[in-house]
Amino acid sequence: MNGGTSRERILGRVRRALTDVPRDERPEDRPVVRDYLRTHGERTTSESLDLLAENLADYRALVHRVTATDLSALLARLLAERGARRVVAPAGLPGEWLADAAVDILSDAPVLTAHELDEVDSVVTGCALAIAETGTLVLGGGPGQGRRALTLVPDHHLCVVRTVDQVVDSVPQALERLAPAAARPLTWISGPSATSDIELDRVEGVHGPRTLEVILLAEDPRSV
């Protein structure tokens, strides 16, 4: 520890630097006008879903739409097409999702090492929510989402979004919903790993999963 001296010195400098601020002004006294939009447009639920799909695809995520009945068959097919053999399923992922997949399913208990994760072909997760306007998935370590390394080290990430209750329109709506979860680590994902470092042009595929597949899961028509 570096003791209290630098702390006091820096805080003292801050206070001396702000002699123009009235002594009785409180931090909340300066209003911030928040007249920006909560959402950029009025949308029906299905329009929000279409926008989410469009924005995900725009940043090179592969998007699939499916109802609950067909989910396990779709996952099995996508994993087979990829040639995946070893697949991580985080705790809390509904068991039936991978019931049809002919793969070795690894749970993360006992905890997989980074090197073990590097030998995994794919990871299948749910999410905390998805943001239509930006094409973003947010994972928060809740059931079926796993710790952060699980969706980072494997090269192929399949993420299931429950469209009935996990899609919001905008960044402000997302942060409001996430506030209670803020104490847990959050990862916001907008498309596969990318870089703009070569001549400021976007190229997909650096360190994170180079293939991101998003499955928009609707309720079965009869159950609605």
């Binding site: 930006t134 803020a182 680590p185 916001w188 976007r202």
Partner: peptide
Amino acid sequence: ERMNPYTSMWTGTA
């Protein structure tokens, strides 16, 4: 970009 590919948020240790 509408949103950058990855944003990490963490609070102390988990």
